[in-house]
């Protein structure tokens, strides 16, 4: 216990005149489920891209399990990119084989179990799927991995209720069985808020509030009303 999964110190990232991250300070302890909350453009995706080494900070320091993010640290991270799609020519089975080849810690057995649970036909082609089904495939690729850090960027956007419930169920399962840190960003809370034990609220590239969700509930009522209070 007490290990830090992600550490950010005064992290900055600019796109032209736009500051995506503006002096972000954040410490995420290992083994927790963290909701990264905030309106669109508050810096959630940029933060995740930085943790996975997709982009580099212009200033400040960022550490993932004590190391600077890069392709090496990505061995330990399962990442669902925002607005991601899957290779449309793949079948579910091909996607799993791809993951087995390239993603360390991917368990085919778990993935097959999840596919059955989420009612995905293994020979179904991604091209012929609904967005909800495609999202389920991509989510399985992330959560069927035995890695210490799972990062899901807006996993519920544009996804039907049934898929969403299945995804939440699968997530509860993953969290139950071990020492995993899970970061989930969302700008709508749906049924997911009971899943978080920590919440981080971002605005304009900064953390405006973070803490234990039960503490925040005591203070603001639900996460939903916390959001309404904080982003008024």
């Amino acid at each position: 216990m007490g290990e830090t999964a992600v550490l950010c110190e005064q992290v900055e990232k600019r796109y032209g005149a736009n500051r995506a991250l503006d002096g972000l300070d954040l410490t995420i302890p290992a083994g927790r489920v963290v909701g990264v909350l905030g309106p669109n453009g508050s810096g959630k995706s940029t933060l995740f891209r930085m943790i996975t080494g997709l982009v580099r900070p212009d200033a400040g320091r960022i550490r993932v399990f004590g190391e600077a993010p890069g392709w090496r640290t990505n061995r330990d991270i399962a990442y669902l990119p925002d607005r991601a799609r899957w290779y449309s020519d793949h079948t579910v089975q091909q996607a799993f084989r791809w993951a087995e080849t390239f993603l360390p810690g991917f368990s085919l057995e778990e993935a097959l179990g999840l596919a059955e649970f989420m009612k995905l036909p293994l020979d179904g082609r991604v091209r012929d799927m609904s967005r909800g089904q495609e999202a389920r495939v991509m989510l399985i690729l992330c959560i069927a991995r035995r890695v210490p850090l799972i990062i899901l960027d807006e996993p519920f956007t544009g996804i039907d209720t049934v898929s969403r419930e299945k995804i939440i169920d699968a997530l509860i399962d993953r969290v139950s069985d071990g020492e995993r840190t899970v970061l989930i960003s969302t700008h709508e809370l749906y049924e997911v808020e009971a899943l978080f034990d920590l919440a981080v609220f971002l605005e304009s590239g900064r953390v405006i509030r973070s803490g234990d969700t039960d503490e925040l509930r005591r203070q603001f009522g639900s996460m939903h009303s916390a959001m309404q209070t904080l982003y008024r």
């Binding site: 997709l54 392709w71 990505n74 991270i77 990442y79 990119p81 290779y87 360390p104």
Partner: peptide
């Protein structure tokens, strides 16, 4: 698919 591709280890 770039997010998948570029975050490969």
């Amino acid at each position: 698919t770039v997010g998948w591709w570029l975050t490969l280890p």
